[in-house]
Amino acid sequence: MARQLVSFGTEGTVFGREGAARSAPQPAMPAAMAVALVAFEGIRKSGQGATPALSWLELGVGRGEVATLLGPAGAGKSVAIDIAAGFIQPDAGQVLMKGERVARLPPWRRDIGLVSTQPDLFPDMTVLGNVTFPLEARGTARAEGEERALAMLARWGIPASLGAARPAALPPGQQLRVALARALVHAPSLLLLDDPLRALEAEDRDTLAADLLRLRAELGLTVLHATRDAALALALSDRVAVLEAGRMRQWGTPRDLYDSPADPVVAALTGPCNRLSGTVVSIEDGACHVRLDCGLGAVGLPVIGAEGSPQAGGRCTLVIRPERVAVAPLSPAELGGDAVPARLLEARFAGDHLRLRLLIGQGGELLVHRPIGLPLPETGGEASIAWDLSAARVHAGG
Results as ranks from 00 to 15, higher is better:
Glu334Lys: 05
Leu359Pro: 00
Val240Ile: 07
Pro261Gly: 07
Gly337Arg: 02
Thr279Cys: 06
Asn274Trp: 05
Thr270Ile: 08
Gln250Ser: 11
Leu345Tyr: 02
Leu292Asn: 05
Ala306Gln: 12
Gly313Asp: 10
Pro332Leu: 07
Val325Asp: 08
Gln311His: 12
Val319Asp: 02
Tyr258Cys: 05
Ile320Asp: 00
Ile304Ser: 12
Ile320Gly: 00
Val266Arg: 12
Asp238Tyr: 13
Leu344Phe: 09
Ala306Asn: 14
Thr317Tyr: 00
Arg321Met: 09
Leu301Thr: 05
Pro302Leu: 04
Pro261Tyr: 07
Ala235Val: 05
Thr317Trp: 00
Val240Gln: 02
Asp293Met: 02
Leu296Asn: 07
Ser277Ala: 12
Val280Met: 04
Arg291Ser: 10
Ser260Thr: 14
His353Met: 13
Asp229Met: 01
Ala328His: 07
Arg324Gly: 01
Val327Ile: 14
Leu232Gln: 15
His289Pro: 00
Leu344Met: 13
Gly300Ser: 10
Ala298Glu: 03
Gly361Leu: 07
Pro310His: 09
Leu330Glu: 10
Asp256Trp: 00
Ile304Trp: 09
Leu318Cys: 04
His289Val: 05
Ala235Cys: 08
Leu292Gly: 09
Leu269Arg: 03
Cys294Gln: 11
Ala328Glu: 13
Pro322Gln: 06
Leu345Phe: 00
Gly297Ser: 14
Asp229Ile: 04
Pro310Phe: 02
Arg239Trp: 13
Leu359Met: 11
Ala350Trp: 07
Thr270Pro: 00
Ala233Glu: 06
Ala287Gly: 12
Gly361Arg: 06
Glu284Asp: 13
Asp293Val: 00
Gly313Thr: 04
Ala333Pro: 00
Leu296Asp: 09
Gly313Asn: 08
